[in-house]
């Protein structure tokens, strides 16, 4: 499970970095989204990966998973979601005002 998780985070980050460095706003927005997915999974995994254990106190629990990263990742998801919405609107505004979708507003 750890190997799979690592691989997913790594691939998402690599895709995110590649897309963020592109010249058009749409790939950049997608790249930022990939990066935020990667960091959300990473934060989640920082509480250590366990299967089938409750995060809150239960009478018959064999052990617990760390609840804090789940709370952190929830916050990060909400913030990331808002930021993505904002940057999409901004990219559309830039497309309208600059006349093209290049991040520097140059026509190619």
């Amino acid at each position: 499970m750890e190997a799979l998780m690592t691989l997913i985070i790594g691939v998402l980050t690599a895709c995110g970095v590649y897309l963020t460095l592109r010249g058009r706003t749409f790939p950049v927005v997608l790249g930022l989204t990939f990066l935020s997915y990667a960091v959300n999974l990473f934060l989640f995994a920082m509480g250590r990966l366990v299967i089938g254990l409750p995060p809150v106190i239960a009478d018959n629990a064999a052990g617990y998973t760390d609840p804090l990263p789940q709370a952190l990742v929830l916050t990060a998801i909400v913030i990331g979601f808002g930021m993505t919405a904002f940057v999409i609107v901004l990219a559309l505004k830039a497309r309208v005002e600059l006349g093209n979708d290049h991040v520097d507003g140059i026509d190619k």
């Binding site: 995110g16 930022l32 990066l35 935020s36 960091v39 990473f42 934060l43 990263p69 990060a76 913030i79």
Partner: peptide, 16 residues
């Protein structure tokens, strides 16, 4: 936004 992502990676590592 990229900076915020790096911030979260650093925070996650420290917490982990």
């Amino acid at each position: 936004l990229t900076g915020s992502t790096l911030f979260l990676f650093a925070v996650g590592t420290l917490y982990g």
